[in-house]
């Protein structure tokens, strides 16, 4: 069952110029993307800076003015404000941000920060509210004395956990996590990712996990979409994307992930440079004449790639053959 269905979503930012400051052009930050998030899964949205992944995330939460297309939740298009209100959408869908310091109000205590969504949606008595906040702190592994502290008194990892606690306060169905661990150290990152997984297991939450870090995405996500210049170039399961990538852009991203295998260093580098060469040389094959990705074509029930039909099938067959040989 899909919790969210995104259909041909477009977010274009206007460029104003000229004497009357009229809209003369548009930047297509998100340029017609479609994908579905199933209930209880973690869906990975991967792309480099400027790919439009954060804009997509904000559109799903309702923080972005959508140009066209729809985002269906319980069969209703939540790009319309009245539908969001009617469905209590902002209670069911929450967000975790990358920068935990600037996304938490520095002048509010942790108690007030976590209770804020509760106050907006649940109208609990003072005691019940406090009890809930304490429960939430417990879920993310923070002590009760955190209640009366301010955000700057916590480390980055603790603040990110506070952000998680705030996001889960209203028992949301979906959490949009925009680069939730990018600013964290490795050991702290592990802690936050574990919390996110545990909360998912306990509460059946779905995540839209937005990240540029393919290593983290592989760990967290069952299904993944790769975004490039406002469009999706490839979607598929974890296995599809990591073991059978078809689009050159996906291959290029994967090849650029640093490997911890020191012995394979030279080989890894050679393969990265080889992929980069193909990427540079064959732009015309993989992108249309405007330099944009083609529409997605399904090569298997789970796996789609943005290529002309014939080429997509050809590549998919070659990949199947390669795997059979291996």
């Amino acid at each position: 069952m899909n919790i969210i269905e995104i259909k041909n979503l477009k977010v274009h930012y206007p460029i104003r110029s000229g004497f009357w400051n009229r809209i003369t052009d548009e930047v297509p930050a998100v340029d017609g993307i479609s994908f579905n998030i199933r209930a209880g899964e973690t869906y990975g949205l991967v792309g480099e800076s400027g790919s439009g992944k954060s804009t997509t995330g904000k559109s799903v939460v309702g923080l972005e003015k959508v140009t066209s297309g729809s985002i269906l939740y319980k069969g209703k298009d939540i790009t319309k404000k009245e539908n969001r209100r009617r469905l209590d959408y902002n209670r069911d869908v929450q967000m975790i941000f990358q920068d935990s310091l600037s996304s938490l109000n520095p002048r509010k205590r942790i108690e007030d920060i976590i209770a804020e969504p509760l106050r907006n949606f649940e109208h609990l008595s003072k005691e019940d509210e406090k009890l809930r906040v304490l429960q939430l702190l417990d879920i993310v592994g923070l002590d009760a004395d955190a209640l009366y502290k301010y955000p700057h008194q916590f480390s980055g990892g603790q603040r990110q956990r506070i952000g998680v606690a705030r996001a889960v306060a209203t028992h949301p169905k979906l959490i949009v996590a925009d680069e939730p661990v990018s600013a964290l150290d490795l050991s702290v990152q592990a802690q936050v990712l574990n919390f996110m997984k545990r909360i998912q297991r306990d509460f059946g939450i779905s995540y839209l996990f937005i990240s540029h870090d393919l290593g983290v995405v592989r760990h967290m996500c069952q299904n993944i979409a790769i975004m490039n210049r406002g469009r999706l170039v490839e979607i598929g399961t974890r296995d599809d994307i990591y073991n059978h990538p078809l689009h050159i852009y996906t291959k290029r991203l994967l090849a650029a992930i640093p490997e911890t295998n020191v012995d394979q260093r030279a080989a890894h580098r050679a393969s990265r440079l080889a992929v980069e060469q193909v990427y540079q040389d064959e732009q015309a094959t993989y992108y249309d004449h405007d330099g944009k990705a083609f529409p997605l074509v399904a090569v298997s029930p789970t796996h789609s790639v943005a290529l002309p039909e014939k080429l997509a099938q050809q590549l998919a067959q070659a990949e199947t053959k390669r795997e059979a040989q291996a």
Binding site: A190, G215, H219
Partner: peptide, 14 residues
Amino acid sequence: SMPQRDDENDDLYV
């Protein structure tokens, strides 16, 4: 504590 290829469904080491 790095996410590894083969422990996708396990918790990470903290």
